[in-house]
Design a protein around this nucleic acid. Structure first.
Length: 602
RNA sequence: CGGGAUGUAGCGCAGCUUGGUAGCGCACUUCGUUCGGGACGAAGGGGUCGCAGGUUCGAAUCCUGUCAUCCCGACCA
């Protein structure tokens, strides 16, 4: 491609709309333009990158026996109602774009495709002889993100590869899951990215085991905890660990003490000169279930620990049936204004005890449940002579013990947040480290959640009708492209890994008025292209400096300059990543680049 | 949805406090000089100042409303 004929517009300054390096660079280098919040036009250079990523994904998927297809983006509400996700995905904080057509039919734009694919499976899979089966597609997804950000990292429209597998049993599912684990590792390795596979929460999509593939970068939105021996790595949402041991309490006698102005654990520990591990903390939440019920939740946990909202939400989901629901739609720490609606009398905030009475609550409407759902984190179970609130502002109790002053809440759960510095479960000598990651891939063992909901069954050898076991597997294709930039750039611009660079080489003519430079460049361009090397020719009537700056900015791996060494029959060849330059004879350029590219593609 | 900020030419910004009919840099067009790390000179083109009301003789500027965008949080297969 000749740059003189390409839509090639680079910017000298960073666009104000971008915050992180990769976002700024993709805009500056002319790879994309924002069309609406979280919606981007993929311009020719970026489209080539996306094509390369897609092709690598396709090759690795096909190698596992998965088959490519294309499912509709416009999906009927009925399917989502059958799976029970229509409400959670369109109401409250739902992420699904929903619309009504002229016949008054409710439709949604696909944020994911479990429902559609399961409906297809229901219609087409009859027998165990057809299994296992794995279908995937690469296409645009729509999600009405509350706050789109960071360009392609969190858009409302983005390209994703999503695959769905169907099995006779969990064992077969596990095999495909392992295949995907390997395929995803291959994809990221081939794309030239540093990544880590971590245990993950399966979130709203449901299912049992899931693994996230995290591209490591400081701008990542997720926190990863891992052990240095490489045995354990998990998203902080999912991570488990051993908390530090509690310091034995210095208080031996139960008493109520004046503790003015100590609404936080830190201030209380300071005033009493005690360890936060001796304090029992009580955190108030309000959970909203899909049945419409609003339930006040009191989480009691050791003072030095934080509540992991994802784990809490999972625990609450298990209890949804008690409130006539199946899912948690919202989970909030209520502010004073929100509390006022359902408090019979003011709560002593910061001084709440584990035994705080239900008489603080009233029911402003039939949906509010005026009874605390009391959950006890396991870190607080074994504490003795602990410090906690007294239900009186300005006073705490010390020396309290379960079974004496306070009833031990019956529901014991694990909702503590693991943190860097905690010891790992597999080896208490290992300490968790922290890193930021960008979630690029996520693989799930779904089980039969969707097949049961939608009635997708097969007949086994014994003639019994059984729900299909399912897995699903996603890769953020457009997100991966930007993550690659986030992981590989310098002050001059993008440094693409060779495997996903839009072009592999760029031939720069420093001075268009020098006929020999032009002739040599044209010949090289033709030779390189003929040799199968994807090459750009910068034949624009610009000064050399502009061309070098642009070549660096757009990040083409190899640059060939038909410049001053031409008089010796040589051209300069520069590696973008390292800046290494060497002079090569004209006829050595093609074989040398072929070697470099082959080496880079492994 | 809570908190914060910003909307002025394709991009980055000034002007607003103190109202008088819009400016700078980059980019773009033409000509000349230059030609290996974002050249120089000259001459040009391009803006309903986000939108809608209001105040005023007069509004980019003051007031009200509204929309959009970005940041922090909440949220997020």
């Amino acid at each position: 491609m000749r740059l003189s004929q390409m839509l090639f517009v680079t910017l000298r300054e960073d666009p104000a709309e971008a915050e992180i390096p990769s976002h700024k660079l993709l805009l500056r280098a002319g790879y994309m333009r924002r069309v609406a919040s979280g919606v981007y036009a993929y311009l020719p250079l970026l489209w080539r990158v996306l094509g390369k990523v897609s092709e690598i994904v396709r090759q690795e998927m096909n190698a596992t026996g998965a088959q490519e297809c294309l499912l509709p983006q416009l999906q009927p509400a009925e399917l989502w109602q059958e799976s029970g996700r229509w409400e959670t995905y369109t109401k409250a904080e739902g992420i699904m774009f929903a619309l009504t057509d002229r016949r008054d039919q409710a439709l949604g734009l696909g944020p994911t495709h479990e429902e559609v694919i399961t409906a297809i499976a229901r219609d087409m899979i009859r027998s165990y002889r057809q299994l296992p089966l794995h279908l995937y597609q690469i296409q645009t997804k729509f999600r009405d993100e509350i706050r789109p950000r960071f360009g392609l990292m969190r858009g409302r429209e983005f390209i994703m590869k999503d695959g769905y597998s169907f099995h006779t049993d969990a064992e077969s599912l596990k095999e495909t899951y392992q295949d995907m684990y390997a395929a995803y590792s291959n994809i990221l390795r081939r794309c030239g990215l540093a990544f880590r596979a971590v245990e993950a929460d399966s979130g709203a999509i449901g299912g049992s085991g899931s693994t996230e593939f995290m591209v490591l970068a400081d701008a990542g939105e997720d926190e990863v905890l891992y052990s240095e021996d490489g045995q354990y790595a998990a998203n902080v949402e999912k991570a488990v660990s051993l908390p530090v041991d509690a310091v034995p309490s210095e208080f031996s006698e139960y008493q109520v003490l004046d503790t003015p102005n100590t609404p936080t654990i830190e201030s209380l520990a300071q005033l009493l000169s005690c360890s936060p591990t001796q304090i029992v903390k009580n955190v108030l939440y309000v959970a909203g279930f899909d049945s419409g019920k609003q339930v006040p939740v009191l989480v009691t946990i050791r003072g030095d620990q934080d509540v992991n909202d994802v784990k809490l939400q999972n625990e609450l989901t298990k209890l949804a049936a008690d409130y006539g629901g199946t899912a948690v739609l919202s989970l909030e720490v209520p502010d004073a204004e929100a509390q006022a609606a359902w408090l019979a009398k003011p709560l002593p905030l910061g001084y709440i005890s584990p035994g705080v009475g239900d008489d603080y609550l009233k029911a402003p409407n039939k949906d509010f449940v005026p009874k605390f759902l009391r959950l006890l984190d396991q870190t607080a179970v074994d504490l003795e002579n602990f410090v906690t609130g007294s239900d009186q502002t300005g006073r705490h109790v010390v020396g309290a013990t379960w079974g004496k002053q306070f009833t031990l809440p019956q529901r014991v759960v694990d909702v503590r947040k693991a943190a860097a510095g905690d010891r790992t479960l597999h080896d208490p000598n290992q300490v968790l480290q922290t890193a930021r990651g960008i979630e690029i891939g996520h693989i799930f063992q779904l089980g039969s959640k969707y097949s049961q909901a939608l009635g997708a069954t097969y007949t086994n050898e014994a003639g019994q009708e059984i729900p299909l076991e399912m897995g699903c597997y996603g890769v953020g294709v457009s997100r991966l492209a930007q993550a690659a930039v986030e992981q590989s750039y310098d002050k001059n611009g993008i440094i693409w890994p060779v495997a996903i660079a839009p072009y592999q080489a760029i031939v720069v003519i420093p001075n268009l008025n020098a006929a020999d430079q032009v002739a040599a460049a044209e010949q090289l361009y033709a030779d390189l292209t003929a040799a199968g090397i994807e090459t750009l020719l910068d034949d624009r009537n610009e000064r050399a400096g502009v061309k070098f700056k642009d070549a660096d900015l757009i990040g083409i791996p190899f640059r060939i300059v038909t410049g001053r060494s031409l008089k010796d029959g040589k051209v300069e060849v520069v590696k973008r990543a390292t800046g290494e330059a060497e002079e090569l004879a004209l006829d050595a350029v093609v074989p040398t680049l072929q070697g470099w590219i082959a080496e880079a593609l492994g």
